[in-house]
Design a protein around this nucleic acid. Structure first.
Lengths: 205, 205
DNA sequence: TCCATAAGATAGTAATAACTTACTTTCTTA
DNA sequence: TAAGAAAGTAAGTTATTACTATCTTATGGA
């Protein structure tokens, strides 16, 4: 379970990074809401108190994790967008990239959702809201470009389509939770996106 | 916050029902994972220990809540199905009924999702899995009927469409969490379902 | 080589969790 | 109307939580 454990002492920056990765790894197996600081520390092969040499609070750890997620996910989908030939192809690439990301880090969507439904406005929650806002903005932009390029019907409501887009990911995540297995996601993703594309382009009966 | 409080002593059956309703009410405002037995009891105007006169464990309380949800939700969507003229109309009625249910009980989908991502196979989790299985089965049956009636393209993959269906609800729930307001859901629901219908029927460009 | 400091270990703290025990109040009914 | 059962209270228990104070060890530069 523990990391290969390089040396016992790590410079602060690396220890912080290792902490974030430990949380992401734990979230893949455990309910995010009962990831304790003790569990994080044990996963890193370090005592619990040591964590607080690098983070003032547990919340700041979660905040770092959310920042990590936002950076990585947005970078990936931006890269996917750049490589795509058309807006519609970009939407598909973004979707597949997102699904792949979730497949690699199955705990991430659970953590995002968990933070979102927190009642009080915490630092982590703010980061998640910002991430989703930026993500939706990109999806909407691609939808608009697709309309301009004549790839997408102009009658399509962009707000609804963007919501449907993120809903598809949520649906796949839920399905993987039901099956207790994350690998099938990629297969199902193609079929689901095909339906989405039909809705956008106007499918043939 | 507390219930109008009828009398201090309630027969066991009513107390159990009141407990379930208290949890559902609390989940609307609080993160389900930190609904304590103390909070439940306080919301009912009763001491914490009193709960354990009626439930052996906290898990059994959650289990009762999940049973309550399954009964009510399935009854509602079955009623909606019966009233609808065609399979496609039934799908829309089921969707709108589901959204309405979530609007009335905003904490319910959070609880379901929270139980689903529990690692160990608990009693509540089993009930949620059963609920979703039965729900998906109904959706799939309507899709098949729609195909037979010529309302839905035969090329539509039923598994993907069913997944998309539940994903739509998830997406709406996430959106309501972002907005911190559940009322807009019903409005957005119509637009999202319109896209879904386009995908099923083959929309006109 | 030695020492200042960064990083970690050990062993605490108070708060809160679910659950229990011993006792009391209310309701039912013979 | 009195007795027994059902329902509730008050005050505990143990375990776990995030966090901290004190002490030890490893690392890198002069």
């Amino acid at each position: 379970m523990e990391t290969p454990s390089p040396s016992k002492h790590l410079p602060a920056e690396e220890r912080r990074a290792a902490t974030v990765e430990a949380v992401v790894a734990l979230a893949a197996q455990t309910n995010p809401s009962d990831i304790s600081t003790t569990a994080i520390a044990k996963h890193m092969g370090v005592t619990q108190g040591a964590l607080f040499k690098h983070f003032p609070t547990k919340e700041s750890i979660i905040e770092a994790v959310m920042g990590w997620v936002a950076d990585r996910l947005l970078a990936r989908i931006d890269a996917a967008t750049r490589k795509a030939a058309t807006p519609l192809a970009a939407l598909e690439a973004v979707f597949m990239t997102h699904v792949e990301f979730v497949t690699i880090h199955p705990g991430v969507p659970r953590m995002l959702f968990g933070e979102l439904q927190r009642a009080e406005m915490s630092g982590p929650k703010r980061l998640v809201q910002a991430l989703i806002a930026r993500y939706s903005e990109r999806v909407r932009a691609l939808l608009a470009q697709g309309k301009a390029a004549g790839e997408i019907r102009t009658s399509v409501d962009e707000t609804s389509a963007a919501l449907l887009f993120v809903g598809m990911v949520q649906g796949l995540v839920m399905q993987s939770l039901l099956a207790g297995d994350v690998r099938q996601m990629s297969d199902q993703a193609a079929g689901v996106f095909a339906l989405f594309r039909d809705a956008l382009t106007g499918a043939q009966a």
